[in-house]
Design a protein around this nucleic acid. Structure first.
Lengths: 258, 258
DNA sequence: GACAACCTCGTACACTGTAAATAGTTATTT
DNA sequence: AAATAACTATTTACAGTGTACGAGGTTGTC
Protein backbone atom coordinates (compact mmCIF):
# COMPACT_ATOMS: atom_id res chain seq x y z
CA UNK A 1 0.00 0.00 0.00
CA UNK A 2 0.80 3.56 0.54
CA UNK A 3 1.82 5.24 -2.60
CA UNK A 4 1.54 4.20 -6.11
CA UNK A 5 3.09 6.86 -8.14
CA UNK A 6 1.26 8.71 -10.78
CA UNK A 7 3.87 9.52 -13.37
CA UNK A 8 6.06 6.45 -13.41
CA UNK A 9 6.49 3.80 -16.05
CA UNK A 10 6.84 4.85 -19.64
CA UNK A 11 5.88 8.52 -19.70
CA UNK A 12 5.14 8.32 -23.39
CA UNK A 13 2.50 5.66 -23.10
CA UNK A 14 0.75 7.75 -20.49
CA UNK A 15 0.83 10.77 -22.74
CA UNK A 16 -0.53 8.91 -25.70
CA UNK A 17 -3.46 7.71 -23.65
CA UNK A 18 -4.05 11.15 -22.14
CA UNK A 19 -4.25 12.73 -25.55
CA UNK A 20 -6.12 9.91 -27.23
CA UNK A 21 -3.26 9.28 -29.58
CA UNK A 22 -3.73 5.56 -29.82
CA UNK A 23 -4.50 4.72 -33.42
CA UNK A 24 -7.71 2.80 -33.93
CA UNK A 25 -7.18 -0.94 -34.28
CA UNK A 26 -7.61 -2.24 -37.84
CA UNK A 27 -8.31 -5.87 -37.03
CA UNK A 28 -9.31 -7.97 -34.11
CA UNK A 29 -12.52 -8.21 -32.16
CA UNK A 30 -14.30 -5.15 -30.90
CA UNK A 31 -13.30 -4.25 -27.38
CA UNK A 32 -15.98 -4.75 -24.76
CA UNK A 33 -14.78 -1.68 -22.92
CA UNK A 34 -12.70 1.30 -23.86
CA UNK A 35 -10.17 3.33 -21.93
CA UNK A 36 -12.79 5.95 -21.14
CA UNK A 37 -15.05 3.32 -19.59
CA UNK A 38 -12.29 2.06 -17.37
CA UNK A 39 -11.29 5.52 -16.27
CA UNK A 40 -14.78 6.66 -15.46
CA UNK A 41 -15.46 3.45 -13.56
CA UNK A 42 -12.29 4.03 -11.58
CA UNK A 43 -13.27 7.61 -10.83
CA UNK A 44 -16.68 6.47 -9.67
CA UNK A 45 -15.12 3.97 -7.30
CA UNK A 46 -12.68 6.53 -5.96
CA UNK A 47 -15.42 9.08 -5.43
CA UNK A 48 -17.61 6.59 -3.64
CA UNK A 49 -15.16 4.53 -1.62
CA UNK A 50 -11.84 6.27 -1.68
CA UNK A 51 -8.66 5.71 -3.57
CA UNK A 52 -7.70 2.44 -1.96
CA UNK A 53 -10.90 0.84 -3.22
CA UNK A 54 -9.57 1.35 -6.74
CA UNK A 55 -7.82 -1.81 -7.84
CA UNK A 56 -7.25 -3.02 -11.35
CA UNK A 57 -9.46 -6.00 -10.58
CA UNK A 58 -12.28 -3.88 -9.23
CA UNK A 59 -12.16 -1.58 -12.22
CA UNK A 60 -12.08 -4.43 -14.68
CA UNK A 61 -15.00 -6.02 -12.93
CA UNK A 62 -16.97 -2.78 -12.98
CA UNK A 63 -16.85 -2.63 -16.77
CA UNK A 64 -17.45 -6.32 -17.18
CA UNK A 65 -14.10 -7.65 -18.29
CA UNK A 66 -11.77 -10.09 -16.61
CA UNK A 67 -8.99 -8.81 -14.38
CA UNK A 68 -6.20 -9.15 -16.88
CA UNK A 69 -8.12 -7.59 -19.74
CA UNK A 70 -7.57 -4.33 -17.98
CA UNK A 71 -4.00 -4.40 -19.20
CA UNK A 72 -5.06 -4.61 -22.80
CA UNK A 73 -6.24 -1.03 -22.54
CA UNK A 74 -4.04 0.57 -19.91
CA UNK A 75 -0.47 -0.56 -19.31
CA UNK A 76 -0.61 -0.33 -15.54
CA UNK A 77 -2.14 1.25 -12.51
CA UNK A 78 0.10 4.31 -12.60
CA UNK A 79 -1.31 5.19 -16.00
CA UNK A 80 -4.84 4.65 -14.73
CA UNK A 81 -4.24 7.17 -11.97
CA UNK A 82 -2.89 9.70 -14.42
CA UNK A 83 -5.96 9.27 -16.56
CA UNK A 84 -8.25 9.60 -13.56
CA UNK A 85 -6.59 12.84 -12.55
CA UNK A 86 -6.93 14.39 -15.95
CA UNK A 87 -10.47 13.14 -16.35
CA UNK A 88 -11.73 14.97 -13.29
CA UNK A 89 -9.53 18.00 -13.99
CA UNK A 90 -12.08 18.78 -16.66
CA UNK A 91 -14.53 19.80 -13.97
CA UNK A 92 -12.60 22.69 -12.52
CA UNK A 93 -13.40 26.14 -13.91
CA UNK A 94 -15.63 24.33 -16.34
CA UNK A 95 -17.44 27.34 -17.72
CA UNK A 96 -14.20 29.08 -18.65
CA UNK A 97 -15.03 32.38 -16.93
CA UNK A 98 -13.84 35.48 -18.69
CA UNK A 99 -11.57 37.34 -16.32
CA UNK A 100 -11.17 41.09 -16.34
CA UNK A 101 -7.70 42.20 -15.32
CA UNK A 102 -8.99 45.01 -13.14
CA UNK A 103 -10.80 42.48 -10.97
CA UNK A 104 -7.86 40.24 -10.33
CA UNK A 105 -8.89 39.79 -6.74
CA UNK A 106 -12.32 38.48 -7.64
CA UNK A 107 -10.73 36.40 -10.37
CA UNK A 108 -8.32 34.66 -8.04
CA UNK A 109 -11.09 34.22 -5.51
CA UNK A 110 -13.09 32.44 -8.12
CA UNK A 111 -10.15 30.23 -9.06
CA UNK A 112 -9.48 29.40 -5.43
CA UNK A 113 -13.03 28.46 -4.55
CA UNK A 114 -13.41 26.48 -7.73
CA UNK A 115 -10.34 24.43 -6.94
CA UNK A 116 -11.52 24.03 -3.39
CA UNK A 117 -14.90 22.68 -4.47
CA UNK A 118 -13.13 20.43 -6.91
CA UNK A 119 -10.88 18.94 -4.23
CA UNK A 120 -13.83 18.46 -1.92
CA UNK A 121 -15.77 16.67 -4.63
CA UNK A 122 -12.84 14.34 -5.29
CA UNK A 123 -10.78 14.13 -2.12
CA UNK A 124 -8.60 11.41 -3.59
CA UNK A 125 -7.13 13.98 -5.95
CA UNK A 126 -5.35 15.54 -3.01
CA UNK A 127 -3.56 12.32 -2.34
CA UNK A 128 -2.48 11.84 -5.90
CA UNK A 129 -1.49 15.46 -6.37
CA UNK A 130 1.47 14.70 -4.16
CA UNK A 131 3.07 13.29 -7.27
CA UNK A 132 4.04 14.75 -10.58
CA UNK A 133 1.77 17.03 -12.55
CA UNK A 134 -0.27 15.21 -15.13
CA UNK A 135 0.32 16.55 -18.61
CA UNK A 136 -3.14 15.97 -19.94
CA UNK A 137 -5.52 18.13 -21.95
CA UNK A 138 -7.94 18.84 -19.13
CA UNK A 139 -5.16 19.65 -16.72
CA UNK A 140 -3.72 22.02 -19.29
CA UNK A 141 -7.04 23.63 -19.89
CA UNK A 142 -7.69 24.31 -16.21
CA UNK A 143 -4.17 25.66 -15.78
CA UNK A 144 -4.69 27.93 -18.75
CA UNK A 145 -7.94 29.32 -17.37
CA UNK A 146 -6.42 29.74 -13.92
CA UNK A 147 -3.43 31.60 -15.30
CA UNK A 148 -5.66 33.91 -17.28
CA UNK A 149 -7.05 35.14 -13.95
CA UNK A 150 -3.87 37.14 -13.52
CA UNK A 151 -3.37 38.05 -17.15
CA UNK A 152 -3.07 41.68 -18.16
CA UNK A 153 -1.83 42.97 -14.82
CA UNK A 154 1.66 43.78 -16.01
CA UNK A 155 3.16 40.80 -14.30
CA UNK A 156 5.95 38.88 -15.94
CA UNK A 157 5.21 35.32 -16.95
CA UNK A 158 7.28 34.03 -14.08
CA UNK A 159 5.38 36.22 -11.67
CA UNK A 160 2.08 35.03 -13.01
CA UNK A 161 3.18 31.48 -12.48
CA UNK A 162 4.26 32.17 -8.94
CA UNK A 163 1.17 34.13 -8.03
CA UNK A 164 -1.08 31.35 -9.21
CA UNK A 165 1.01 28.69 -7.55
CA UNK A 166 0.84 30.55 -4.27
CA UNK A 167 -2.93 30.61 -4.39
CA UNK A 168 -3.24 26.98 -5.44
CA UNK A 169 -0.70 25.83 -2.88
CA UNK A 170 -2.69 27.52 -0.19
CA UNK A 171 -5.95 26.05 -1.41
CA UNK A 172 -4.47 22.60 -1.50
CA UNK A 173 -3.17 22.92 2.03
CA UNK A 174 -6.39 24.35 3.39
CA UNK A 175 -8.62 21.80 1.73
CA UNK A 176 -6.60 18.95 3.12
CA UNK A 177 -8.05 19.62 6.52
CA UNK A 178 -11.63 19.51 5.37
CA UNK A 179 -11.09 16.61 3.01
CA UNK A 180 -9.47 14.35 5.52
CA UNK A 181 -12.39 14.61 7.88
CA UNK A 182 -14.58 13.41 5.09
CA UNK A 183 -12.25 10.55 4.27
CA UNK A 184 -11.73 9.42 7.83
CA UNK A 185 -15.44 9.46 8.40
CA UNK A 186 -16.06 7.27 5.41
CA UNK A 187 -13.30 4.83 6.18
CA UNK A 188 -13.79 4.42 9.89
CA UNK A 189 -17.50 4.98 10.07
CA UNK A 190 -16.82 7.33 12.93
CA UNK A 191 -17.99 10.90 12.90
CA UNK A 192 -15.61 13.50 14.17
CA UNK A 193 -17.63 13.85 17.32
CA UNK A 194 -17.55 10.13 18.03
CA UNK A 195 -13.85 10.01 17.49
CA UNK A 196 -13.25 12.89 19.83
CA UNK A 197 -15.49 11.52 22.50
CA UNK A 198 -13.27 8.46 22.58
CA UNK A 199 -10.07 10.41 22.57
CA UNK A 200 -10.94 13.14 25.03
CA UNK A 201 -10.94 11.11 28.23
CA UNK A 202 -7.38 10.15 27.50
CA UNK A 203 -6.28 13.66 26.63
CA UNK A 204 -7.54 14.83 29.99
CA UNK A 205 -4.99 12.60 31.63
CA UNK A 206 -2.02 14.10 29.82
CA UNK A 207 0.01 16.87 31.32
CA UNK A 208 -0.33 19.88 29.10
CA UNK A 209 2.06 22.06 31.03
CA UNK A 210 4.87 21.58 28.48
CA UNK A 211 2.54 23.02 25.85
CA UNK A 212 1.11 26.14 27.44
CA UNK A 213 0.31 28.02 24.27
CA UNK A 214 -1.16 25.05 22.46
CA UNK A 215 -3.24 24.10 25.42
CA UNK A 216 -4.72 27.57 25.75
CA UNK A 217 -5.29 28.11 22.04
CA UNK A 218 -6.52 24.57 21.56
CA UNK A 219 -9.23 25.04 24.14
CA UNK A 220 -10.50 28.13 22.38
CA UNK A 221 -10.44 26.74 18.88
CA UNK A 222 -12.87 24.14 20.10
CA UNK A 223 -12.39 21.36 22.60
CA UNK A 224 -8.68 21.08 21.91
CA UNK A 225 -8.94 20.81 18.14
CA UNK A 226 -12.32 19.10 18.14
CA UNK A 227 -14.54 21.59 16.42
CA UNK A 228 -13.35 23.07 13.17
CA UNK A 229 -14.64 25.84 11.03
CA UNK A 230 -12.99 24.94 7.74
CA UNK A 231 -15.12 27.39 5.84
CA UNK A 232 -14.09 30.29 8.03
CA UNK A 233 -10.45 29.25 8.10
CA UNK A 234 -10.39 29.00 4.32
CA UNK A 235 -11.89 32.44 3.87
CA UNK A 236 -9.52 33.94 6.40
CA UNK A 237 -6.42 32.47 4.78
CA UNK A 238 -7.49 33.35 1.28
CA UNK A 239 -8.16 36.94 2.29
CA UNK A 240 -4.65 37.19 3.74
CA UNK A 241 -3.08 35.68 0.66
CA UNK A 242 -4.93 38.09 -1.58
CA UNK A 243 -3.95 41.00 0.67
CA UNK A 244 -0.35 39.95 0.31
CA UNK A 245 -0.68 39.76 -3.45
CA UNK A 246 -2.37 43.13 -3.41
CA UNK A 247 0.71 44.73 -1.89
CA UNK A 248 2.85 43.10 -4.55
CA UNK A 249 0.63 43.91 -7.51
CA UNK A 250 -0.12 47.48 -6.46
CA UNK A 251 3.55 48.21 -6.08
CA UNK A 252 4.20 46.68 -9.46
CA UNK A 253 1.61 48.73 -11.27
CA UNK A 254 2.64 51.89 -9.42
CA UNK A 255 6.16 51.45 -10.73
CA UNK A 256 4.89 50.98 -14.24
CA UNK A 257 3.08 54.27 -14.17
CA UNK A 258 6.20 56.15 -13.27
CA UNK B 1 -1.84 0.26 -2.27
CA UNK B 2 -2.65 3.87 -2.13
CA UNK B 3 -3.70 5.02 1.24
CA UNK B 4 -3.48 3.44 4.54
CA UNK B 5 -4.99 5.78 6.99
CA UNK B 6 -3.14 7.12 9.92
CA UNK B 7 -5.74 7.57 12.61
CA UNK B 8 -7.99 4.56 12.20
CA UNK B 9 -8.48 1.54 14.40
CA UNK B 10 -8.78 2.03 18.11
CA UNK B 11 -7.75 5.63 18.74
CA UNK B 12 -7.02 4.85 22.35
CA UNK B 13 -4.41 2.22 21.66
CA UNK B 14 -2.63 4.66 19.39
CA UNK B 15 -2.66 7.30 22.06
CA UNK B 16 -1.33 4.98 24.71
CA UNK B 17 1.58 4.06 22.49
CA UNK B 18 2.23 7.66 21.54
CA UNK B 19 2.44 8.70 25.15
CA UNK B 20 4.25 5.61 26.38
CA UNK B 21 1.36 4.70 28.59
CA UNK B 22 1.77 0.96 28.28
CA UNK B 23 2.57 -0.39 31.72
CA UNK B 24 5.74 -2.43 31.90
CA UNK B 25 5.12 -6.16 31.64
CA UNK B 26 5.53 -8.02 34.93
CA UNK B 27 6.15 -11.48 33.56
CA UNK B 28 7.14 -13.11 30.37
CA UNK B 29 10.37 -13.10 28.42
CA UNK B 30 12.21 -9.92 27.67
CA UNK B 31 11.24 -8.44 24.34
CA UNK B 32 13.92 -8.60 21.66
CA UNK B 33 12.76 -5.27 20.29
CA UNK B 34 10.72 -2.44 21.69
CA UNK B 35 8.23 -0.11 20.08
CA UNK B 36 10.88 2.56 19.70
CA UNK B 37 13.11 0.16 17.74
CA UNK B 38 10.31 -0.70 15.37
CA UNK B 39 9.37 2.91 14.83
CA UNK B 40 12.89 4.11 14.19
CA UNK B 41 13.50 1.22 11.82
CA UNK B 42 10.35 2.15 9.96
CA UNK B 43 11.38 5.79 9.77
CA UNK B 44 14.77 4.78 8.42
CA UNK B 45 13.16 2.70 5.70
CA UNK B 46 10.75 5.48 4.78
CA UNK B 47 13.55 8.03 4.65
CA UNK B 48 15.68 5.82 2.48
CA UNK B 49 13.20 4.14 0.18
CA UNK B 50 9.91 5.92 0.52
CA UNK B 51 6.72 5.12 2.30
CA UNK B 52 5.73 2.17 0.21
CA UNK B 53 8.87 0.34 1.21
CA UNK B 54 7.57 0.30 4.77
CA UNK B 55 5.79 -2.96 5.36
CA UNK B 56 5.21 -4.69 8.64
CA UNK B 57 7.37 -7.55 7.43
CA UNK B 58 10.23 -5.28 6.40
CA UNK B 59 10.15 -3.48 9.72
CA UNK B 60 10.02 -6.69 11.72
CA UNK B 61 12.92 -8.04 9.73
CA UNK B 62 14.92 -4.86 10.28
CA UNK B 63 14.81 -5.29 14.04
CA UNK B 64 15.38 -9.03 13.87
CA UNK B 65 12.01 -10.45 14.78
CA UNK B 66 9.64 -12.58 12.75
CA UNK B 67 6.90 -10.91 10.72
CA UNK B 68 4.07 -11.51 13.13
CA UNK B 69 5.99 -10.49 16.21
CA UNK B 70 5.50 -6.98 14.98
CA UNK B 71 1.92 -7.21 16.19
CA UNK B 72 3.00 -8.04 19.70
CA UNK B 73 4.24 -4.47 20.01
CA UNK B 74 2.05 -2.43 17.69
CA UNK B 75 -1.53 -3.37 16.93
CA UNK B 76 -1.40 -2.56 13.24
CA UNK B 77 0.15 -0.56 10.50
CA UNK B 78 -2.04 2.48 11.06
CA UNK B 79 -0.61 2.81 14.54
CA UNK B 80 2.91 2.41 13.20
CA UNK B 81 2.34 5.33 10.86
CA UNK B 82 1.04 7.47 13.69
CA UNK B 83 4.09 6.65 15.73
CA UNK B 84 6.39 7.41 12.80
CA UNK B 85 4.79 10.79 12.32
CA UNK B 86 5.16 11.79 15.92
CA UNK B 87 8.68 10.44 16.10
CA UNK B 88 9.97 12.71 13.36
CA UNK B 89 7.81 15.61 14.53
CA UNK B 90 10.37 15.91 17.28
CA UNK B 91 12.84 17.30 14.78
CA UNK B 92 10.98 20.41 13.80
CA UNK B 93 11.83 23.57 15.73
CA UNK B 94 14.01 21.38 17.84
CA UNK B 95 15.88 24.11 19.68
CA UNK B 96 12.67 25.75 20.85
CA UNK B 97 13.58 29.23 19.68
CA UNK B 98 12.45 32.06 21.90
CA UNK B 99 10.21 34.29 19.83
CA UNK B 100 9.92 38.00 20.46
CA UNK B 101 6.45 39.33 19.62
CA UNK B 102 7.83 42.41 17.92
CA UNK B 103 9.58 40.21 15.38
CA UNK B 104 6.59 38.16 14.40
CA UNK B 105 7.61 38.25 10.77
CA UNK B 106 11.00 36.75 11.44
CA UNK B 107 9.38 34.30 13.81
CA UNK B 108 6.94 33.02 11.24
CA UNK B 109 9.70 32.91 8.68
CA UNK B 110 11.66 30.70 10.97
CA UNK B 111 8.68 28.44 11.56
CA UNK B 112 8.00 28.20 7.83
CA UNK B 113 11.54 27.33 6.81
CA UNK B 114 11.87 24.87 9.66
CA UNK B 115 8.77 23.03 8.56
CA UNK B 116 9.95 23.18 4.99
CA UNK B 117 13.29 21.60 5.84
CA UNK B 118 11.47 19.04 7.89
CA UNK B 119 9.21 18.04 5.02
CA UNK B 120 12.13 17.86 2.66
CA UNK B 121 14.03 15.64 5.06
CA UNK B 122 11.07 13.28 5.35
CA UNK B 123 9.00 13.62 2.19
CA UNK B 124 6.77 10.74 3.22
CA UNK B 125 5.35 12.94 5.96
CA UNK B 126 3.59 14.97 3.29
CA UNK B 127 1.72 11.91 2.13
CA UNK B 128 0.65 10.93 5.60
CA UNK B 129 -0.24 14.45 6.64
CA UNK B 130 -3.23 14.10 4.34
CA UNK B 131 -4.88 12.27 7.19
CA UNK B 132 -5.83 13.23 10.72
CA UNK B 133 -3.49 15.10 13.02
CA UNK B 134 -1.49 12.84 15.27
CA UNK B 135 -2.08 13.63 18.91
CA UNK B 136 1.40 12.79 20.12
CA UNK B 137 3.80 14.57 22.43
CA UNK B 138 6.24 15.67 19.75
CA UNK B 139 3.48 16.90 17.50
CA UNK B 140 2.07 18.85 20.41
CA UNK B 141 5.44 20.30 21.26
CA UNK B 142 6.11 21.53 17.73
CA UNK B 143 2.60 22.99 17.51
CA UNK B 144 3.17 24.76 20.78
CA UNK B 145 6.42 26.28 19.64
CA UNK B 146 4.94 27.27 16.31
CA UNK B 147 1.98 28.95 17.96
CA UNK B 148 4.24 30.88 20.25
CA UNK B 149 5.67 32.58 17.17
CA UNK B 150 2.53 34.69 17.07
CA UNK B 151 2.03 35.03 20.80
CA UNK B 152 1.79 38.46 22.36
CA UNK B 153 0.60 40.27 19.25
CA UNK B 154 -2.84 40.98 20.56
CA UNK B 155 -4.42 38.33 18.39
CA UNK B 156 -7.24 36.23 19.74
CA UNK B 157 -6.58 32.56 20.18
CA UNK B 158 -8.67 31.77 17.15
CA UNK B 159 -6.73 34.27 15.09
CA UNK B 160 -3.43 32.81 16.23
CA UNK B 161 -4.61 29.42 15.15
CA UNK B 162 -5.68 30.67 11.77
CA UNK B 163 -2.55 32.68 11.17
CA UNK B 164 -0.36 29.72 11.90
CA UNK B 165 -2.50 27.38 9.84
CA UNK B 166 -2.30 29.71 6.91
CA UNK B 167 1.47 29.68 7.01
CA UNK B 168 1.70 25.94 7.49
CA UNK B 169 -0.84 25.23 4.79
CA UNK B 170 1.18 27.28 2.38
CA UNK B 171 4.41 25.58 3.36
CA UNK B 172 2.85 22.20 2.91
CA UNK B 173 1.58 23.07 -0.52
CA UNK B 174 4.82 24.64 -1.65
CA UNK B 175 6.99 21.82 -0.42
CA UNK B 176 4.90 19.26 -2.21
CA UNK B 177 6.36 20.41 -5.48
CA UNK B 178 9.95 20.04 -4.37
CA UNK B 179 9.33 16.83 -2.50
CA UNK B 180 7.67 15.02 -5.33
CA UNK B 181 10.60 15.61 -7.61
CA UNK B 182 12.77 13.96 -5.04
CA UNK B 183 10.40 11.05 -4.68
CA UNK B 184 9.88 10.48 -8.36
CA UNK B 185 13.58 10.55 -8.92
CA UNK B 186 14.16 7.94 -6.28
CA UNK B 187 11.36 5.68 -7.41
CA UNK B 188 11.85 5.82 -11.13
CA UNK B 189 15.58 6.35 -11.23
CA UNK B 190 14.94 9.13 -13.71
CA UNK B 191 16.18 12.62 -13.13
CA UNK B 192 13.85 15.43 -13.98
CA UNK B 193 15.90 16.21 -17.06
CA UNK B 194 15.74 12.64 -18.31
CA UNK B 195 12.05 12.50 -17.78
CA UNK B 196 11.51 15.72 -19.65
CA UNK B 197 13.72 14.73 -22.51
CA UNK B 198 11.43 11.78 -23.06
CA UNK B 199 8.28 13.78 -22.75
CA UNK B 200 9.22 16.84 -24.73
CA UNK B 201 9.18 15.33 -28.21
CA UNK B 202 5.60 14.35 -27.65
CA UNK B 203 4.56 17.69 -26.24
CA UNK B 204 5.83 19.35 -29.37
CA UNK B 205 3.25 17.45 -31.35
CA UNK B 206 0.30 18.70 -29.31
CA UNK B 207 -1.68 21.71 -30.36
CA UNK B 208 -1.30 24.33 -27.68
CA UNK B 209 -3.65 26.82 -29.26
CA UNK B 210 -6.46 26.01 -26.84
CA UNK B 211 -4.10 26.98 -24.00
CA UNK B 212 -2.63 30.28 -25.11
CA UNK B 213 -1.77 31.64 -21.68
CA UNK B 214 -0.37 28.40 -20.37
CA UNK B 215 1.71 27.88 -23.44
CA UNK B 216 3.27 31.33 -23.22
CA UNK B 217 3.83 31.26 -19.48
CA UNK B 218 5.00 27.67 -19.57
CA UNK B 219 7.69 28.47 -22.04
CA UNK B 220 9.04 31.21 -19.84
CA UNK B 221 8.98 29.33 -16.58
CA UNK B 222 11.37 26.93 -18.20
CA UNK B 223 10.86 24.56 -21.09
CA UNK B 224 7.15 24.27 -20.44
CA UNK B 225 7.36 23.35 -16.78
CA UNK B 226 10.71 21.62 -17.05
CA UNK B 227 12.98 23.76 -14.95
CA UNK B 228 11.81 24.76 -11.53
CA UNK B 229 13.16 27.13 -8.97
CA UNK B 230 11.49 25.76 -5.89
CA UNK B 231 13.64 27.85 -3.61
CA UNK B 232 12.66 31.07 -5.32
CA UNK B 233 9.02 30.12 -5.55
CA UNK B 234 8.92 29.28 -1.87
CA UNK B 235 10.49 32.58 -0.87
CA UNK B 236 8.14 34.50 -3.13
CA UNK B 237 5.04 32.86 -1.77
CA UNK B 238 6.11 33.16 1.82
CA UNK B 239 6.84 36.85 1.39
CA UNK B 240 3.34 37.41 -0.01
CA UNK B 241 1.74 35.46 2.81
CA UNK B 242 3.63 37.47 5.39
CA UNK B 243 2.71 40.70 3.63
CA UNK B 244 -0.91 39.67 3.83
CA UNK B 245 -0.59 38.91 7.51
CA UNK B 246 1.17 42.19 7.99
CA UNK B 247 -1.85 44.07 6.75
CA UNK B 248 -4.03 42.11 9.13
CA UNK B 249 -1.80 42.39 12.17
CA UNK B 250 -0.97 46.04 11.70
CA UNK B 251 -4.62 46.92 11.44
CA UNK B 252 -5.31 44.92 14.55
CA UNK B 253 -2.69 46.59 16.66
CA UNK B 254 -3.64 50.02 15.34
CA UNK B 255 -7.16 49.44 16.56
CA UNK B 256 -5.90 48.37 19.94
CA UNK B 257 -4.03 51.61 20.41
CA UNK B 258 -7.12 53.63 19.87
C1' DG C 1 -8.16 -19.96 -46.70
C1' DA C 2 -4.05 -18.09 -44.42
C1' DC C 3 -2.23 -14.82 -41.67
C1' DA C 4 -1.54 -11.01 -38.73
C1' DA C 5 -3.54 -8.05 -35.48
C1' DC C 6 -6.11 -7.64 -31.70
C1' DC C 7 -9.02 -8.78 -27.48
C1' DT C 8 -9.89 -11.73 -23.56
C1' DC C 9 -8.85 -14.79 -20.17
C1' DG C 10 -6.66 -18.38 -16.74
C1' DT C 11 -2.82 -19.29 -14.25
C1' DA C 12 0.87 -17.91 -11.49
C1' DC C 13 4.15 -15.21 -8.52
C1' DA C 14 5.67 -12.17 -5.20
C1' DC C 15 4.03 -9.12 -2.31
C1' DT C 16 0.72 -6.91 1.26
C1' DG C 17 -1.85 -6.67 6.16
C1' DT C 18 -3.25 -9.49 9.71
C1' DA C 19 -6.29 -13.45 12.10
C1' DA C 20 -5.61 -17.62 14.69
C1' DA C 21 -3.31 -21.09 16.99
C1' DT C 22 0.85 -22.70 19.15
C1' DA C 23 5.07 -22.80 21.58
C1' DG C 24 8.41 -20.89 24.61
C1' DT C 25 9.92 -17.80 28.58
C1' DT C 26 9.54 -15.49 32.82
C1' DA C 27 7.73 -13.95 37.47
C1' DT C 28 4.44 -14.79 40.70
C1' DT C 29 1.57 -17.77 43.50
C1' DT C 30 0.74 -21.98 45.75
C1' DA D 1 9.55 -27.00 43.79
C1' DA D 2 5.34 -27.04 41.07
C1' DA D 3 1.67 -24.73 39.03
C1' DT D 4 -0.09 -20.86 36.92
C1' DA D 5 -0.71 -16.61 34.73
C1' DA D 6 1.30 -13.19 31.81
C1' DC D 7 3.90 -12.21 28.27
C1' DT D 8 6.82 -12.77 23.75
C1' DA D 9 7.77 -15.16 19.53
C1' DT D 10 6.61 -17.96 15.76
C1' DT D 11 4.17 -20.79 12.16
C1' DT D 12 0.59 -21.27 9.21
C1' DA D 13 -2.94 -19.37 6.57
C1' DC D 14 -6.15 -16.26 3.94
C1' DA D 15 -7.73 -12.69 1.14
C1' DG D 16 -6.20 -9.07 -1.31
C1' DT D 17 -2.80 -6.44 -4.38
C1' DG D 18 -0.16 -5.45 -9.18
C1' DT D 19 1.11 -7.74 -13.12
C1' DA D 20 4.15 -11.27 -16.18
C1' DC D 21 3.23 -14.97 -19.25
C1' DG D 22 0.97 -17.66 -22.47
C1' DA D 23 -3.01 -19.68 -24.59
C1' DG D 24 -7.24 -19.12 -27.11
C1' DG D 25 -10.76 -16.76 -29.69
C1' DT D 26 -12.18 -12.95 -33.05
C1' DT D 27 -11.82 -9.88 -36.73
C1' DG D 28 -10.07 -7.69 -40.93
C1' DT D 29 -6.76 -7.95 -44.83
C1' DC D 30 -4.14 -10.46 -48.27
Amino acid sequence: MSDEISGRGDPLKSLQLLWGRTEAPRRGPKAKAGVADLVSAAVAIADAEGLDAVSTRRVADAVGISPMSFYTHIPGKAELLDLMMDAVAGEVLKDRPVFKPAQWRANLSRVATDYRDFYLAHPWVIQLATHRTVLGPNTFRSADVALSAVEGLGLTDLEMDRVLNLVLDYVHGAVRNAAREKRVKELTGMTDAEWWSRVEPFLETVDFSPYPVLSRVGKTTGETYGAHDPEGAFAFGLARVLDGLSVFIEEKTAKRKR
